[in-house]
């Protein structure tokens, strides 16, 4: 087991190294880079006072931002910084990348956790009910609903929700994490205000993920319901409630928990499109802005963060697979 984990870890390191290199290379291909637009701005600002021209600014800034190095050297320099725990300063936000990350990540985490809780509360009962009444109208309804949720484009769902709740009914704000009078509210009022602004993003994210988990629950529940020990339980004359709750559901929990643990790292990855559409200043929205503007340190940090999370998920999945089902031997 330990041997497996060590091997898996070293593989993860190699993958992260090359993955980060690919992203770094692609970032450096951007012709209208951040540096160029900054040079253009500064040249325009200093044009009246006879300051440096665009070319002079560009040379200076390229020097300052180490854009003169070729891709490999630049990458190795960046990596050197990372090894010393220094991800550099974000170009767009002007503060250390890790500091900005600390400021914004908790919005995303809170958003994801609420979504996950809501998802579990909705999906598991629905999935179980659908499995109990297989091929009934209810089951078909659940299947169609789950499929519909899987088929919804994030941006469309978010826009429709905004249209209904923010524009037509005017119950909630169109976007943002705080309301206009946030600063004047009491401590508790501030929390309520933020919670209110989270309703639509949570609803969007929950609806998008409900489909998958419902179907997963239903499939696993059906598998358990066809097992011999359920037949035995019924033959013993146990009530249906006991059969479902004690015997069937508990066994369904095993794959569900392993599925959840697989989801754990993704709690931190942020929901880029939903956050951007609702302008929730979480990691997704902030890094989307950084990427579009060519903020190299921030994009690199976020990408590596995602790479690490993916690797973590995969490792967790492998390990949980073995933990949950002792028949599986990892070698």
């Amino acid at each position: 087991m330990w041997k497996f984990i060590v091997r898996r870890l070293s593989l993860a390191v190699v993958i992260i190294f090359f993955g980060a290199f690919i992203i770094y290379g692609v970032m450096r291909c951007m012709p209208t880079s951040f540096v160029e637009s900054l040079a253009r701005q500064r040249a325009a600002a200093s044009a009246t006072t006879g300051g440096p021209t665009y070319q002079e600014w560009l040379t200076q800034l390229n020097e300052a931002y180490h854009m003169n190095d070729d891709v490999v050297t630049g990458y190795l320099n960046w990596l050197g910084g990372v090894a010393r725990g220094d991800f550099g300063n974000s170009w767009k936000y002007g503060i250390p990348v890790t500091e900005k990350f600390n400021q914004v990540i908790w919005y995303s985490v809170v958003l994801s956790i609420i979504t996950l809780v809501l998802e579990v509360v909705i999906c598991i009962p629905l999935g179980i009910q659908a499995a109990r009444h297989q091929y009934s109208g209810f089951d078909y309804g659940i299947t169609v609903f789950a499929m519909l949720c899987i088929s919804l484009p994030t941006f469309f769902l978010a826009t429709v929700l905004k249209y209904i709740f923010a524009v037509k009914l005017a119950w909630l704000d169109l976007y943002g994490i705080v309301g206009r009078y946030h600063e004047q509210l009491s401590q508790f009022g501030k929390i309520l205000d933020m919670a209110q602004h989270m309703i639509l993003p949570v609803l969007t994210l929950a609806m998008l993920s409900v489909g998958g988990l419902t179907r997963y629950t239903r499939t696993n529940m059906l598998e358990v319901m066809n097992a011999d020990y359920i037949r035995t339980a019924r033959a013993k004359g146990l009530s249906e409630r006991v059969v479902i709750n004690r015997h069937a559901f508990r066994n369904t929990l095993i794959p569900l928990v392993s599925y959840m643990s697989y989801l754990l790292p993704s709690l931190f990855s942020g929901a880029m499109i939903t956050e951007t559409l609702f302008q929730i200043p979480g990691i997704g929205y902030i890094s989307y802005d950084a990427m579009v503007q060519g903020d190299l340190p921030f994009t690199m940090f976020y990408s590596v963060f995602l790479l690490v999370l993916t690797q973590l998920s995969l490792m967790l999945a492998d390990i949980m697979y073995a933990v949950v089902d002792p028949r599986v031997r990892v070698n």
Binding site: I15, Y288, T299, Y302, S303, L306, Q311
Partner: peptide, 13 residues
Amino acid sequence: SIPYYPIMIITGS
């Protein structure tokens, strides 16, 4: 493992 949306956004830009 390469994050999908970052790459698509960068190549789009």
